[in-house]
Design a protein around this nucleic acid. Structure first.
Lengths: 207, 207
DNA sequence: TAGATTGTTAATCGATTAACAATC
DNA sequence: TAGATTGTTAATCGATTAACAATC
């Protein structure tokens, strides 16, 4: 049942996982899957999948399940990944270089369109087909290219200032690789990637 | 109050975030902080921090707060990151190369000790001071180096098989960079890093 | 039709939060 | 001491799960 209440973040957060699994079912040439099929693959409950999807509409058929291609299309539309998103990358060090070369972004519709750094030694270098620009070009570039998404790959102690600049430039979604918690104003999303945090969540259980 | 009930995963999952914030307070030369100070920095509730910590002991003082250095030590001990952890890396492509060079691991006590790939073209190459080995050496190396932690950086369709090999070799904690959900037996932890999932969690809110 | 599976309800489960006695 | 802040309780809030009528 679709209401006008906002969908819980935790539900939205699972949709990309469903979408990723659907792509694999598609690669395996599955035409139709049940919520139980998907649940088995993801090691979660089938009721949770049905309930999550019910926030957005009725995409299945009783007795048959879900059409893999239809559900992929619907989830892509809901998540707004039925288009290409250009991204700004701030930080042209080793990590930034690895990020700009990561094929997984382009393969799923995300593309680094411009690269910035504040270090004069890095400005002017080429990152694939992009020239590293100074931070003073951020505002104009983001506006000119209509960019809403950015990746932060600077040291922890510079990250908050960079995020502030990005928000001021109109960026509304930020993927942060700096190992630090960062504040953003309402209306701006931020997600953090810190592999060490994930490792530390596991060492607790070792021994 | 410390009981013998297992601490919820969601609580354990927040400890690395607390630890990361503590290191920054330490860099700022803070001696003592209150749960409210930490909560403000992390944009969460102070009661949650106190309740989370109370699962493990009493680390604060009424009226004073927490000693930054003491709490850092305690959390490091709880998470078992008061030591160095050697890691096996599987996958010697671009992503594996970036991972092996990522300074953030070593800086926080995680070190890649051996690298494996199944591609004969990659075997024998050098990754910093390590030689890329064939998968047939996995079992012996992991045993010889007493490694319990591994990183998977292979294509999605190879990841499950690699994880099975790792588990068979005695690995008990796996950081997976392949964009796929993977099953592990009880007693083995797995965490996933897929930056595109994080981006897709944000595009939903755009426009 | 008979069998299967959805979408939804209601119950259960677990996590977060507010409040405050204890106490440094 | 007076002020501040912890550790803990109990209430609230929200998410997960089981169950099943609807129906393809």
């Amino acid at each position: 049942m679709v209401t006008n209440k906002p969908v819980p973040d935790i539900v939205v957060g699972r949709l990309p996982i469903y979408l990723r699994a659907l792509r694999r079912f598609q690669e395996e040439a599955c035409i139709t899957i049940s919520s139980a099929d998907l649940a088995r693959r993801l090691a979660i409950g089938s009721a949770q999948i049905r309930k999550d999807l019910s926030h957005f509409g009725e995409f299945g058929r009783q007795g048959r399940g879900y059409d893999v291609s239809r559900l992929t299309t619907e989830l892509s539309r809901i998540l707004k990944v039925d288009r290409e998103w250009g991204m700004a990358l701030v930080g042209a060090g080793d990590l930034g270089s690895a990020i700009s070369q990561y094929a997984g972004f382009r393969a799923r519709g995300f593309r680094v369109k411009c690269v910035f750094d504040k270090d004069p030694a890095k400005i002017g270098r080429r990152f694939a087909d992009l020239e590293v620009l100074g931070m003073e070009h951020l505002l104009a570039q983001v506006a000119a290219l209509s960019i809403r998404v950015a990746i932060v790959a600077v040291p922890a102690d510079e990250a908050q200032a960079v995020v502030n600049d990005l928000v001021a430039a109109g960026i509304r979604a930020i993927l942060n690789y700096a190992p630090i918690s960062i504040a953003v104003p309402p209306g701006v999303s931020i997600q953090h990637i810190d592999p060490v945090v994930h490792l530390q969540r596991m060492t607790y259980y070792l021994e």
